[in-house]
Simulated assay, not measured.
Amino acid sequence: MAESREHTFIGTKGLNKVREWRLDRPRYLAILVHGYGEHIGRYEYVADRLVHHGAAVYGLDHIGHGRSGGDRVLVEDFEDVVTDVHSVEERARAEHPGVPVVVIGHSMGGMIAARYGQRYNAGLTALVLSGPVIGEWAIVPELLTYEEPPDTPIDPATLSRDPSVGAVYAADPLVWHGPFKRATLEAFAVMLGTIAKTGTLGALPTLWAHGEDDQLVPLPGSRVGIEAIKGTDLTERIYPGARHEIFNETNKEEVLDDVTAFIDRTLTHN
Rank of each mutant, 00 (worst) to 15 (best):
D77L: 10
A55D: 02
S107K: 01
D84H: 08
G69Q: 04
V85D: 12
T125K: 12
A114C: 02
R72Q: 07
M111D: 00
G64E: 09
E79C: 08
S107H: 05
V75W: 09
V99F: 06
L127Y: 04
T83A: 15
R115H: 10
G66W: 09
A92F: 03
V51Q: 00
I104C: 13
V88R: 10
V51P: 01
V99R: 13
A122V: 07
E90P: 00
A56M: 00
R115K: 11
A122Y: 11
D80M: 06
G70M: 11
M108I: 04
Y58L: 04
G64S: 05
E90S: 14
R115T: 00
V88Q: 09
V57A: 04
H62Y: 04
R72K: 14
R72W: 10
G123S: 12
G69V: 08
G64H: 07
I104F: 02
L127F: 05
T83R: 15
L129F: 03
P100D: 06
H65A: 03
V103P: 00
E79N: 15
P97D: 11
A55G: 03
V128G: 07
T125G: 05
D80K: 01
Y116M: 03
R119Q: 13
V51L: 04
I112K: 01
S130W: 14
E89Y: 05
S107I: 10
T83W: 02
A92Y: 05
G131D: 11
R72D: 06
S107M: 05
S68I: 09
M111Y: 00
L127V: 13
H86E: 15
V102M: 03
G59E: 09
G105R: 01
V51Y: 01
E76H: 06
V128N: 12
P100H: 09
I63L: 14
L60Q: 14
V101I: 12
P132Y: 09
E79I: 01
A114I: 00
A122K: 12
A114K: 00
I112L: 04
D71V: 15
S87N: 15
G110R: 03
Y116K: 06
S130Y: 14
M111S: 00
E79D: 15
I104T: 11
G54E: 11
V81A: 13
G54K: 02
H52L: 10
P97I: 02
G109T: 01
Y58M: 07
Q118P: 01
A94W: 05
V51T: 07
Q118D: 09
G59T: 05
L124F: 02
R91M: 14
